[in-house]
């Protein structure tokens, strides 16, 4: 009985402490990789490895609730909602479903934001800092349930009939799927 109680205390302490890092605020952003994307890429074919941009440190924006909520704020501030609404789409494609035309990996979404895409998606390169594009990419993934529940925003400031990102069921991505090959 005593042992079980101690075990429960230790386990709950680990659970509680383990969830702290999700709230870490990344206020000093790492320097952005220079010229990550300097050319417009229209073709899906690449010479050599199929490289896509990677976040500065592996998944740091995907694992931080602060970054994802910043992404949510920027999604509105930079008028992504103008075409994609709050994920349901309109002029632009919906982002909360399973269909990803240009890939669902953070790097794919980052490239889409930075390069722009045919038929209306503008290029935000040089207009927004790279870390903000990574934050927006993380938020976009949360809309399709691709982020852990603990990281996704659980409330919005808008009148919104869709459930919060944290309770969106995971949509298995279709289209370009799988993790692209990364440099060794």
């Amino acid at each position: 009985m005593q042992v079980r109680l101690q075990l429960m205390v230790v386990l709950s302490a680990i659970t509680v402490l383990g969830s702290c890092s999700r709230e870490d605020r990344i206020l000093r952003q790492p320097p952005s990789a220079s010229n990550t994307l300097n050319t417009v890429q229209i073709s899906g074919l690449n010479p050599g490895a199929n490289l896509i941009p990677t976040p500065p440190s592996s998944n740091m924006y995907q694992e931080s609730a602060y970054s994802v909520s910043e992404g949510q704020k920027l999604f509105e501030a930079y008028n992504c909602v103008g075409c994609h609404a709050h994920g349901g789409g309109g002029i632009g494609p919906p982002l909360m479903d399973s269909n990803w035309i240009y890939g669902s990996e953070p790097g794919n979404i980052f490239a889409t934001i930075m390069q722009g895409r045919p038929n209306g998606m503008p290029s935000f390169r040089n207009r927004i800092p790279e870390y903000q594009a990574w934050e927006i990419a993380a938020y976009v993934r949360s809309m399709a349930g691709l982020l852990p529940k603990g990281v996704s925003p659980n409330r919005t400031d808008e009148m919104n009939i869709k459930p919060a990102e944290s309770s969106t069921p995971k949509q298995t991505p279709t289209g370009i799927t799988g993790v692209p090959e990364q440099p060794k």
């Binding site: 605020r25 206020l27 000093r28 952003q29 320097p31 952005s32 704020k73 927004i128 800092p129 870390y131």
Partner: peptide, 14 residues
């Protein structure tokens, strides 16, 4: 700006 007001909405501009 993040050095002067950490957390501010203004992003650093290198």
């Amino acid at each position: 700006p993040q050095r002067i007001k950490p957390g501010t909405q203004m992003s650093p501009n290198p």
